[in-house]
C-alpha cells in the first residue's frame, strides 16, 4: 500500500530539537525526527511519554517552547497548514447539544472548499447513527465515529489520531481500522496514530515513532527497525550478560532459569551458540519500553533533513 502512495522526499512532519513544557517540567524534550508523507505512523510510548502533547503541537494547538517544527512544509497551525491537518484528540471533543447532522454541518461551515460531505456521511451511515440524535446522547463508540467522520470530511493530508479506538468494541474497532486504512490508501493521507494498545498497530502501521520520557527512542520504517534488531535465545548460566554481547547494543535481556532471551541491535554476527530471529513489532516495543536507557535509534528516513529544520 505504501509502495503506491509513497512520495519520495515528501515530508509530513519534521522536528528538530522540539521541546514543550507543561508548567515546570518538560513534556517533550529535544525531539528530532521526520515522518515522510504517505505513511501510517504509530506513535507509541508509555502513559505520560508526551504522545498527546506531540500531537497537539503538530495540530497547531500549542506552541513549542524550543526547537523547530515543520508540518507539510509549513509551520504547524499556519494558514496554509491548518486546512490540511485533521486532529482527533483522545477525548473526542464534540458539541454535546448538536445533532449528528449539526456536527457535519459544522464541518462544512468551518472547512469551506475542502469539506467532503459524502465521505463524512458514509462513515456516519456505516455506523447506523441516528442522524437527529444529540451527540451527547450517543454512546462513546458512536461519538468516536462522528468525530472520525468530522476528521475525514476535512479531507486532510495529515490525520492525527490520539488513541482513536480506545472505546470501540473489537468488531467496530476492526471495521473502523479497515475504513481508516482504505481512506488513507485512497487519498495518500499520512496518518499519525497514537496508541498504547500494541496489538492495534501490528499490520496497520508501516512507520514508528517511539517516545519515552519526552524523548524520541525509535523512529523509522517498521521493517527497517525490526531488521536491525534480533531476538537472541540461548543457554547462559553465569551472572551478568554474556561476553559475546559486548560488541552489540543490548536493548533488553531476561533470564528464565538457564535460558536467556535478549533483544539486541547487532553490529555484526553474534558469537556463540544462539538462536536468533527477527523480533515482532510487539517484541521490539516491549523491549524498548522496559529499557529506558538504550540509545535512541533513527533510521535515515526519520532523520531530520539538516539545514532546513535542524538549523
Amino acid at each position: 500500500m505504501t509502495d503506491l502512495t509513497y512520495v519520495p522526499g515528501g515530508t509530513a512532519v519534521e522536528a528538530a530539537g522540539l521541546g514543550v513544557k507543561h508548567r515546570r517540567s518538560w513534556a517533550l524534550r529535544d525531539c528530532s525526527f521526520r515522518i515522510p508523507t504517505g505513511r501510517v505512523c504509530a506513535l507509541v510510548g508509555p502513559n505520560g511519554a508526551g504522545k498527546s502533547t506531540l500531537l497537539s503541537v503538530i495540530a497547531g494547538l500549542r506552541r513549542p517552547e524550543t526547537g523547530r517544527l515543520e508540518v507539510l512544509g509549513g509551520s504547524a497551525g499556519g494558514p496554509g497548514t491548518r486546512p490540511r491537518v485533521a486532529y482527533l484528540p483522545q477525548d473526542k471533543p464534540l458539541y454535546p447539544q448538536f445533532t449528528v447532522d449539526d456536527t457535519l454541518r459544522m464541518g462544512r461551515e468551518l472547512n469551506p472548499g475542502r469539506w467532503d460531505q459524502a465521505a463524512a456521511e458514509r462513515l456516519v451511515r456505516e455506523g447506523n447513527l441516528p442522524r437527529h440524535a444529540r451527540v451527547g446522547a450517543l454512546s462513546s463508540g458512536q461519538r468516536t465515529r462522528v468525530a472520525l467522520a468530522l476528521a475525514f470530511g476535512k479531507r486532510p493530508d495529515l490525520l492525527l489520531l490520539d488513541e482513536p479506538m480506545a472505546d470501540l468494541d473489537p468488531l467496530v474497532r476492526h471495521e473502523t481500522t479497515a475504513a481508516l486504512m482504505a481512506e488513507a490508501a485512497e487519498h495518500a493521507t499520512t496518518i499519525v496514530l497514537a496508541s498504547h494498545v500494541l496489538s492495534e498497530l501490528d499490520g496497520v502501521c508501516d512507520y514508528l515513532l517511539l517516545l519515552g520520557d519526552g524523548r524520541i527512542r525509535l523512529a523509522g520504517e517498521v521493517e527497517d527497525l525490526i531488521g536491525v534488531h534480533r531476538v537472541v535465545v540461548g543457554r547462559h548460566e553465569e551472572p551478568g550478560l554474556p561476553r559475546a554481547f559486548g560488541a552489540h547494543t543490548v536493548v533488553s535481556a531476561r533470564t528464565t532459569g538457564r535460558q536467556l532471551t535478549a533483544v539486541l541491535r547487532p553490529e555484526g554476527p553474534v558469537a556463540g551458540q544462539w538462536e536468533t530471529s527477527e523480533p515482532t513489532l510487539e517484541d521490539l516495543l516491549l523491549a524498548h519500553l522496559r529499557a529506558p536507557g538504550v540509545p535512541p535509534l533513527l533510521t535515515p528516513s526519520a532523520e531530520p533533513r539538516s539545514g532546513r529544520a535542524a538549523a
Binding site: S56, A59, G60, L61, P79, R82, P83, V85, A86, Y87, P89, D91, P93, L94, Y95, G107, L110, N111, P112, G113, R114, L150, K154
Partner: peptide, 14 residues
C-alpha cells in the same frame, strides 16, 4: 474548559 476549543481551533477557518 470542556475541551471543544480543540475541535473548533483545528478546522480550516483559523
Amino acid at each position: 474548559e470542556s475541551g471543544t476549543w480543540r475541535l473548533a481551533w483545528t478546522q480550516s477557518v483559523p
